[in-house]
Write a protein that binds this DNA or RNA. Structure first.
Length: 462
RNA sequence: GUCUCCUUCGUCUAGGGGUCUAGGACACCGCCCUCUCACGGCGGCAACACGGGUUCAAAUCCCGUAGGAGACGCCA
């Protein structure tokens, strides 16, 4: 039987980074086994689900290069099927109507908690077979309460619980809508899912779901529960930590290659390998290599990976990715300057935002000069800059190498260190003392623009 | 509270009884390169949660303890 897995997000927000990893693991598992990767949108919580969220989930998955086979299943379209299954269970005695009111149950629960006991539905209606007119009953499953249930989880290993831990879960609410527990089981069965790979917050749900599978006499799929991702402080990763969704990281200037490499290595490993291509990931991925312990999200490592993928990317593709982060319209000449300067800035940027920031030197003259520049604005520096202007004017073609040589000669002649001249030029060209090589910048900006920027600096500090 | 799971450098991890004076990566620190900052190169710091077993031998197996996490909804 060929592998069929699914990723089943609820469109109640943007895609959490942990969910993105679940999607990636499912996708890799499917591709590794030559199986199918399906999508199911669990939108039955109509209050919180939106089509915008669904759209953004599709988009971010595409951005991460996670593609799916077959049409996505929209869970809300399957209500009738879910009801049908619940009613069948009712008919053959595997489920029953429960008339207990929510108030009644809340009281019982409160009492249990107060006396320090764990709460479970007490099966009043199952035992009494009561029927109360004027109340819409829920449908509950008759769960097995003796013996054990064991899940042979691919990631977690064998996990066993006593059936006495389970209570008679609700299949259909009093308004006739199915619960999550029912819907997942029915959908996974109908979609012929062979392996359910999801976050380990679902591990205990699995035992309940197995009861539903058994009641329906359906085959139980294999399960793999992967650990969650936590923030640096060990708490569940959330907005509180700054960024928690894949969209957040995209907007922060991370490359999809870097993000997916990072989340792949979070909780999964292949020996000492760190940089892993998609092809290698598909070849190497197995659930057995997923660790059982939860892991913490570490932004510095993501940044390092991102810088690696920035270095690896072609200058053209980097330019395309940088453009959306540049606020203003840019001309053809600015565009070609950025492209020529890309080699110089890509090693200095860890995110695309930083790339855009560095690229600004090729877009416009500095709007102001950093305080640090004043150190290189003394009378002597100004004189040196005037000499540099002459050098620029007389260097044809205006190339980095000869320019550098001539300025070095100037430094020797004037008996100053090269750094004194270079930093003054840098301040003039960029408005700050950190940038790529100043001679490279001059070559790219050309004579006119370079001299104009230096003159502005000279005038400003004269 | 009940049930379930987890615990190797700060972080992600390698490790399947002897090859572990515990390896790699990120971060951090030093040095080199150097027109600044990066990149790159070289080097350094740094961990088997604790306590008992089993064994000739334990990071590796077993049992406790402590700490952490998750689940206990007419949410998904």
């Amino acid at each position: 039987m060929s592998v069929r897995v699914r990723f089943a997000p609820s469109p109640t927000g943007s895609l959490h980074i942990g969910s993105a990893r679940t999607a990636l693991f499912n996708w890799l598992f499917a591709r590794h086994h030559g199986g199918k990767f399906l999508l199911r949108i669990e939108d039955t919580d109509s209050l919180r689900s939106t089509t915008e969220n669904t759209k953004s989930i599709f988009e971010i998955l595409k951005w991460l290069k996670i593609d799916w086979d077959e049409e996505p299943v929209i869970q809300s379209n399957r209500l009738e099927r879910h009801k049908e299954v619940a009613n069948n269970l009712l008919k053959n005695g595997a489920a029953y109507h429960c008339y207990c009111s929510q108030e009644e149950l809340a009281t019982k629960k409160e009492r249990a908690v107060k006396s320090g006991k764990s709460y479970q539905y007490d099966r009043t209606c199952r035992n009494s077979n009561r029927k109360i007119d004027g109340i819409n009953p829920v449908i509950r499953l008759k769960t097995e309460y003796s013996g054990n249930t064991t899940v042979d989880d691919i990631v977690q290993g064998e996990v066993t619980i006593h059936n006495s831990q389970l209570d008679d879960l609700i299949l259909l609410r009093s308004d006739g809508t199915p619960t999550y527990m029912l819907s997942v089981v029915v959908d996974d069965h109908d979609m012929e899912i062979t392996h359910v790979i999801r976050g380990d917050d679902h591990l205990t749900n699995t035992f309940k779901q197995i009861q539903i599978y058994n009641a329906c006499h359906w085959n139980v799929p294999k399960f793999g529960h992967i650990p969650l991702i936590y923030g640096p402080d060990g708490a569940k990763l959330s907005k509180r930590h700054g960024a928690a969704s894949a969209d957040d990281y995209r907007d922060l200037g991370y490359l999809p290659e870097a993000l997916s490499n990072y989340i792949l290595r979070l909780g999964w490993s292949h020996g000492d390998d760190e940089i892993i291509s998609r092809e290698q990931a598909i070849e190497w991925f197995t659930l057995e290599n997923v660790g059982k312990s939860p892991s913490r999200f570490d932004t510095p490592k993501l940044r390092s990976l991102n810088s690696h993928y920035i270095m690896e990317a072609s200058n053209e593709s980097l330019l395309e990715r940088t453009l959306p982060f540049i606020r203003c319209e840019i001309s053809e000449i600015q565009r070609s300057r950025i492209l020529r300067g890309m080699n110089g800035i890509k090693s200095r940027a860890k995110t695309v935002i930083e790339l855009a920031d560095l690229a600004s030197i090729y877009i416009a003259a500095p709007s102001n000069f950093d305080d640090s520049c004043t150190k290189y604005s003394t009378k002597q520096h100004i004189e040196l800059l005037l000499d540099v202007i002459s050098i620029i004017e007389s260097t044809t073609p205006l190339l980095e190498e000869p320019l550098c040589e001539y300025v070095k000669e100037l430094a020797k002649k004037k008996n100053v260190k090269l750094i004194e001249i270079a930093q003054a030029i840098r301040g003039a060209l960029c408005g700050k003392l950190v940038s790529p090589s100043v001679f490279e910048i001059i070559e790219i900006l050309g004579m006119e623009e370079s001299i104009s920027r230096i003159k502005r600096f000279v005038d400003y500090f004269k």
